[in-house]
């Protein structure tokens, strides 16, 4: 926790891009999905929301994405939220099956009225980043699960958003693909310098990817711990097998255990 405080001070010097201030969301008048959540997200952060199901992590993401509005509290974008400031990746790849890979990646621009030719370079460049430049004319059904997820990531990245929200994007993939995509995600983040909020229920994934882990508990959904993973990037397979990684996993597990144990 000492390390956490130090990193927190360091984070203060960075610019904040989003603040979630005491946000509560109540469904149907009595189901408290999220209670008093506060979170400041700084430029370049990789924040993981970690917790059991029902802890409100997906609700938090939907609130930040603007799909829902808080019952009380506020979500503020520093400098205002502009078009293309936000990218999202869901648990499912959520691609349009009738459109090619390139057309799927074009979508965020298309919805802003840009023709394909006007943004062709961005689309191709982003597909190159995720390693799918050869598949731009393929249809989603021709791709494997991991490749579909890469297309979804490319679509989220194509507008070079300030913030990317990811809702358990790799949960449905096999372990090998998942590791590969974890590594690639960190590479991508380093290349384009975006900020990511990542929902997961995997301790190992959160420790590998993030510099901040927000541990949440259920009934009512709320934040109970925040851990800092004070380990620089790039992180690679060496980090995955290091004693530091194991130590962070242990403390994250303990925090998660707290979250589950309270109601178990």
């Amino acid at each position: 926790m000492q390390q956490g405080a130090a990193a927190g001070v360091a984070a203060q010097t960075q610019s904040r891009i989003l603040s979630v201030a005491n946000v509560t969301k109540v469904f149907n008048g009595d189901l408290v999905a999220l209670s008093g959540m506060s979170l400041d997200v700084n430029r370049g952060d990789f924040v993981s929301l970690l917790g059991p199901s029902g802890c409100g992590k997906s609700t938090a993401l939907r609130l930040i994405s603007g799909l829902m509005h808080p019952t009380s509290g506020a979500i503020r974008w520093d400098g205002g939220k502009g078009q293309g400031d936000l990218g999202v990746v869901f648990q499912e790849p959520t691609l349009m099956p009738w459109a090619t890979v390139a057309q799927n990646v074009w979508l965020p621009f298309r919805l802003r009225g840009k023709t394909y030719n006007a943004v062709k370079d961005e689309v191709l460049e982003t597909l190159r980043l995720v390693g799918l430049e050869k598949f731009l004319n393929a249809y989603p059904r021709e791709l494997s699960g991991g490749m579909k997820m890469r297309v979804a990531i490319a679509r989220a990245l194509v507008t070079r958003p300030r913030l990317i929200l990811m809702d358990e994007p790799f949960a449905a993939l096999d372990e090998i693909t998942r590791h590969k995509l974890n590594n690639d995600l960190l590479d991508l983040k380093a290349k384009i310098g975006c900020t990511i909020i990542f929902v997961t229920h995997s301790v190992f994934e959160s420790v590998f990817l993030s510099n901040r882990i927000v541990v949440m508990a259920a009934r009512p959904g709320r934040v109970i711990h925040e851990l800092t993973v004070d380990q620089g990037y790039p992180r690679d397979e060496e980090y995955r097998t290091s004693p530091e990684y194991a130590a962070y996993c242990r403390s994250a597990s303990a925090a998660l255990h707290d979250a589950i144990g309270e109601h178990a």
Binding site: G66, L86, V88, F90, L111, R112
Partner: peptide, 28 residues
Amino acid sequence: DHNLRDLFKIYGATRWQRLRFLQLPSAL
């Protein structure tokens, strides 16, 4: 697809864009 609807909403699609790019192809 429900997630695609959410995605369109997040990207600020107009009613017409949602119909043209999402609902009509889904209905084909």
